[in-house]
Amino acid sequence: MSANREAILSRVRGALAPLEKRAPLPDWDNELIAMRTLRGTVDAWPLFCERLKLVNGVSFESLAALVTWLDGQGWRHGYCDPALWASLKDAFPATFTVETTFDRTRVDDYQFGITRAAGAVAETGSLILTDKTTSSRLAALAPWVHVAVLIRGTIFADLQHAVTALADDPNIIFCTGPSKTADVEGILIEGVHGPGQQAALLVEG
């Protein structure tokens, strides 16, 4: 392996040696990637909801509305982050079965998974999940519905701010709507490997 390393690095040096000067690293201003349609937007939550809707995600401002939606679709068996369950469970009627451990031997039993978001990006409608705040990567991915519980104060205005403030975490993922494909004749199909429904539940803070 180290022979390969030396071979590659010496070939790189050899290839670059004849260059009289190297291309400098350009600096660029955040203004370059500011989306013109979103300039001057102040309130991040309504913008996030609007952008999430554009990618076929759904947002809820109240727990009751979320439960009504799940109930109405017949999604009554799911998983919830144990750290959240204490504050959520009173809103779920007895017809629901909610587990607080995710059993990977029966991933298809869970119709929904509720986990915490570490934040969101308003301009793209993305939810930010990190290893620290997500109680189970699988529970946020394998069920048909993923509900991310989002704290209002953690929403970034745009991608630039979100990327430069990435947490110190081994795995951070921006989820922008449901899992999708257009591989077959360019036709959009949602729910390929991940959720067919991506939801955000707002909590104050």
Binding site: T124, K132, L166, P170, T176, P178
Partner: peptide, 19 residues
């Protein structure tokens, strides 16, 4: 605007993460 799943990975999972 952005690909659905954009993942930033710096290493193996954190200790508390089951998956």
């Amino acid at each position: 605007q952005l690909t659905v799943y954009t993942e930033f990975i710096t290493g193996p999972k954190s200790a508390a993460q089951p998956d």
